[in-house]
Amino acid sequence: MPALKCGNQIIECEGIIFDKDGTLIDSFKIWPALIKNRVKILQREIGFDKEMVQLLEKAMGLKEGDVIRRSPIVVGSREQTAAAMATLLFVYCGIPWDVGMEKANMALDLCDKEMGLVSQAIPISGVPKTLKNLYEAGFKLAVATNDDMERTHALMKYAGLAPYIHAYACRNEVERSKPAPDLIYLICRRLGLEAGQCIMVGDSLLDIQMGINAGVYMTVGVLTGASRKEEIDGISDMIIQDISGMQPGF
């Protein structure tokens, strides 16, 4: 079993499960433009005033140019983000909620096409080298994300991270999203491992809770995304600044 140096500890594990956004991909750098473009597309399709623009941006998680931690785009699934948009369209524009969901999902899909996924595939500094080192040391690496499978594969490919990933589990493949353990259970089946042979690495409290609920060997919180240290301190088994704090222990 390969040894992992994580922070100042040496850990024996076989699988390392990573969250994607805020852990591997520098989503906080991407999300402001993504949110603004989604709203522009909706405005083009429906037509509404500046106040509604600001409400929709905030509903997704953007306020005065900054992404709000633990907002829908940060900790929610794509479907949940669309639902937040559709609810505002229902309350303020009188658009039936099911029609609003269609419009919101259309805006999300069209935004990806107009912006291109390549522009959104920005790895956090140090991530490519760290994954390469862990992969070559014999760890089985996986990604558990609230994003959908097609988008996840594309982003990981364009970010240059796909060659190091053995398995994925995405929101559209399981019944329950984080913090339920479903994503980890699916990954473990694909890796041929038990949850207790794996560690879970993520930037949000939901990632840590998912790992705990699944019974992983250890949870590791990183400070590159959704959660501040004080939010996961005492809940996560270990906290490191970013995943470059994880290296083969040999």
Rank of each mutant, 00 (worst) to 15 (best):
Q120D: 01
A144Y: 00
G65H: 03
Q54T: 08
F139N: 04
M60F: 01
V91S: 05
L131W: 05
P128C: 01
A144K: 01
K157D: 13
Y92V: 01
G100R: 09
T81Q: 11
Q120E: 03
S77V: 03
A144D: 02
V143Y: 00
I73Y: 05
E102D: 15
K132H: 02
A121S: 14
L62Y: 01
K157E: 15
A121H: 01
S125Q: 12
M149K: 14
I73M: 11
W97P: 00
F90A: 09
R70V: 03
Y164V: 09
E136L: 12
L117Q: 06
I95F: 09
Q80T: 01
L55W: 09
D66K: 15
D182G: 04
V118Q: 12
A142Q: 07
Y158T: 01
C111D: 10
L56K: 07
M106F: 15
H153Q: 11
Y168F: 15
C111T: 15
L161D: 05
G94C: 03
I124V: 06
R70Q: 14
G65E: 02
C111V: 10
K63R: 10
Y185C: 07
Y185M: 07
A137C: 09
N133T: 09
C188S: 12
F139H: 08
K132Q: 10
C188D: 11
V75Y: 03
V174Y: 05
P123C: 09
A180H: 15
L161A: 07
M85W: 07
H153W: 08
G100N: 08
R70T: 07
E64L: 03
S71F: 10
I122C: 06
I184M: 00
T81I: 02
E175R: 12
G138N: 06
T87I: 12
N146Q: 13
R69N: 11
L186G: 09
N172T: 12
S125M: 11
E102A: 13
V74W: 06
A137H: 09
K178V: 12
V67I: 15
A142E: 08
A142Y: 08
L62A: 08
S77K: 06
T145F: 01
E102I: 14
E175S: 09
S177W: 09
L183P: 02
K157S: 14
A83R: 04
K129W: 00
P181H: 03
